[in-house]
Amino acid sequence: MFTPIPYGRLNSRQKENYNFHKVAARMADFGFNCLRLTDDWQGADFIACHVDGQTFLKVQLKGRLCLDKKYIGKEIHIAFLRGVDCFIYPHDELLATALSNGAMNAESERWRDHGQRHWPQPPAWGMAFLANYKL
């Protein structure tokens, strides 16, 4: 009755829905209830509310490790899946790490010209950073 659908056959909106549910299911294991937003609110695709009643995360879904100038100072967490692994990291902490270790600077072409930087395969320093944010 149930036949798995290959991820590659999904359109972009279906992939975003799929990724949301995969991330939300993983976050549930850590006491979070995820509320999907109909449009980006303060840069977030969803809000993750912890059972402690005090922790609320604004989360943006992405397909990979990334930075974007539009998220700076907004207390955004970025969530992405890499194989069976799920990562949710604070955007501004990754930015600080990338700048402090020299992996990126204000003159990095993509950052300077487009306000973005992403890594399809996280570099070694990125994986070290992500080790603290793997669910």
Rank of each mutant, 00 (worst) to 15 (best):
N105E: 12
L99A: 00
P122W: 11
L94Y: 03
L99K: 05
E107L: 12
F87W: 05
Q121A: 09
H118Y: 10
L94H: 02
A98W: 01
I88G: 00
A79Y: 01
N105S: 12
D113W: 10
W111Q: 05
N105Y: 05
P90E: 06
H91P: 07
R112Y: 12
N101Y: 02
R82G: 05
F80E: 02
Y71M: 12
T97Y: 04
A124M: 10
D113N: 13
G102C: 00
C66V: 02
I78F: 04
Q121L: 15
S100H: 13
A96V: 11
G83D: 14
A124T: 10
R110H: 09
E107R: 08
L95E: 01
L95I: 06
R82N: 10
T97N: 13
A79M: 13
E107F: 06
G126D: 00
G126W: 00
C86Y: 09
M104D: 03
L99M: 15
D85E: 11
E93L: 13
H118V: 07
L67A: 07
G102S: 04
E109Q: 09
D113Y: 14
K74T: 11
M104C: 06
Q116F: 14
S108M: 07
E75H: 15
A98Y: 02
R112A: 14
H118T: 13
I78R: 02
T97R: 03
Y71H: 15
G83E: 14
Q121W: 05
A124H: 09
G102D: 03
R82P: 01
D92V: 06
F80L: 05
G115P: 08
E109R: 15
A103V: 01
D92F: 06
R112L: 13
